[in-house]
Design a protein around this nucleic acid. Sequence first.
DNA 1: ATGACCTAACTTTTAGGA
Length: 261
Amino acid sequence: MLIATWNVNSIKQRLDHAIRFLEETQPDVLCLQELKCQDEAFPGERIEALGYNLAVHGQKAFNGVAILSRHPISDIRRGLPEGDGDDHSRYIEALVARPDGGVLRVASIYLPNGNPLGTPKFDYKLAWMRRLEQHARALLLLEEPLILAGDYNVIPEPRDVYDAEAWLGDALYQPESRGAFRRLLALGLTDAVRACDDAAGLYTFWDYQAGAWQRNKGIRIDHLLLSPQAADRLSATEIHKATRGWEKPSDHVPVSARFDF
DNA sequence: ATGACCTAACTTTTAGGA
């Protein structure tokens, strides 16, 4: 099975891109982030025509996450637990029926950006990461193949950024943000890309500004975290860098992981 | 050297992104 994640920066603006990616790459599951539309405005028709089932958790103008699956989906959860007062649509989870008869639990995650530092936005990011950690801990007790995929808005390590010094004052590279990401890994989750490739300079985001793409000033912030039962079956990962060169691209590119189930 | 973008919305300016 091929599982992919992509922050599309508006699904309405990027529908042709998403369709092209689905046709060319044929993922079994695609997790989307930053839909920037409400559920009823999600342009699902052409996606469903390709054979995908949809689970959408949208909101007006900002955020919004979805799971597209070629296989039956059930057990849909929208939002993390303990979300009193959190009206951002940043988490959706579903159980996907595997072709081999087993199940696979997948979440599409859009973790808060957290900038600027010293504001409630950064506190919100850290609190959200704590909630994700708690929920991941509970999910791991199920001992299922589990994939927490999405835009984490965290640069895990210096090798994941073109120039670490330039990001020292940014919420994506703060010790607290990176520590919270490491706590997720310490639960027993595996960073899929890093399980397959130790190289520096693997990026998933290039800013629209300042010719970041042309100068390869990228960062790696889109991740697939795997439970042991998923990591055991991981065979390969891919960063679909070419999409960043398409006409009117998203600033993020898809990341995918292949499993031998 | 410097600045350099994109999206949605109560749209001609702002908020949010990263």
